[in-house]
Computed example of a mutant assay.
Amino acid sequence: MKHIIPYIAILLLATVIIYSNAEKERTRITERCQDTFSHAIRTEKKLLIKQFCMQYRQENSPNSLSVEDKKDWYDQNYLIATSPSRHQLDSLFRDGAHKINRNISTAIGYTFNGKNFFSGDESCRKSVIPVQECVYRKDTISTTDIVLQAYIHIPFYVPLQNTYTYAVVFMASVALAICFLYTRRRKKNMTGIPLQELPETGNRTTDNARWIIISKEVWWDEKNHIIKKGETSMILTGESLKFFKLFLENKSFFLSYKTIYESYGLKDEAPEFKDRIYQSIKLLRKDLIGFGITIRSVRGRGYELIFQ
């Protein structure tokens, strides 16, 4: 067994590195597909909506939704009425995804007026993963919402097709060859030498949670990314975790647009990130409902956390 352990260690290390890199590549592909879907939505509107005339009176609109949100809803309502299959959007999204990788399969869907549409084969619906969801509202009644969804299927071999994977395989092969030659050469010299046993150590469990109070009843464990209020707790992940930590960095829990774009490595506002930021804030707002926390949009400035 002592001769097999080095081979197992090399193979395990190579497998972990390749798997980790594949997951990063899969995440990168997914994020690029999110941006591609947002771009496809904007392009579809430019192609199919040449002119838009609207009369709007704030006094006739008792809800707090902005004019832009309502206009986006009417745009999507018109596009669904014109083409219930959303063929143009489906084609634009597929073409954009194929520019990332030709082996990626795509589909779109939407929910409106109790109807659920899916552009792909229903038999393949379980194999695709949702990468983006855009919600359009004209009022506070959720039954009138228009929800667009983007789906992709990434074959398992796609994230592995990169020079990094090939380099790891090559280095692992060289390491195995060196290990084989070394153990073969040293085998006779090691004969008869007793092995020393290492002292046994007992297992020890500790509570590694470090809670800080961010409001009167809400606690936050930054190390494990857990938010807690009473018996209710949740682990924040992905974009929700990113934006929540950005809020906490400001003592007044205010997050400016400038800070958001700087977190993406941008100096100025980028239109292609607008939908992505909006959806990320919306997802975080949904996650924080059960903790008595809301996110208020400050027009032209950014967002603010409000504790009830």
Rank of each mutant, 00 (worst) to 15 (best):
I104C: 05
S105W: 03
S105T: 11
T106A: 04
A107Q: 05
G109Q: 03
G109H: 01
F112E: 02
N113C: 01
G114N: 13
K115D: 03
N116M: 08
N116P: 00
N116I: 12
F118T: 04
E122M: 12
E122L: 13
C124A: 13
C124K: 09
S127N: 12
V128I: 12
V128N: 03
I129A: 11
I129T: 15
V131F: 13
Q132F: 10
E133P: 00
V135M: 07
R137Y: 06
R137D: 09
K138A: 13
D139H: 08
T140C: 03
T140F: 09
I141N: 15
I146S: 08
V147F: 00
V147G: 00
V147W: 01
V147C: 00
L148A: 02
Q149M: 05
Y151A: 01
Y151P: 01
H153W: 11
H153V: 06
H153G: 02
I154Q: 06
I154M: 05
P155M: 04
F156R: 07
V158A: 08
P159A: 04
P159G: 04
Y164P: 00
A167G: 11
A167Q: 03
V168T: 11
V168G: 05
V169K: 11
F170K: 11
M171A: 12
A172S: 14
S173W: 02
S173P: 00
V174Q: 05
A175F: 12
L176P: 07
L176S: 07
A177G: 13
A177I: 14
A177S: 12
A177E: 03
C179A: 13
F180H: 15
T183I: 13
T191N: 09
I193H: 13
L195C: 08
L195K: 10
L198K: 13
P199R: 04
E200Q: 09
N203K: 09
R204N: 08
T206D: 08
N208M: 07
A209Y: 08
A209P: 00
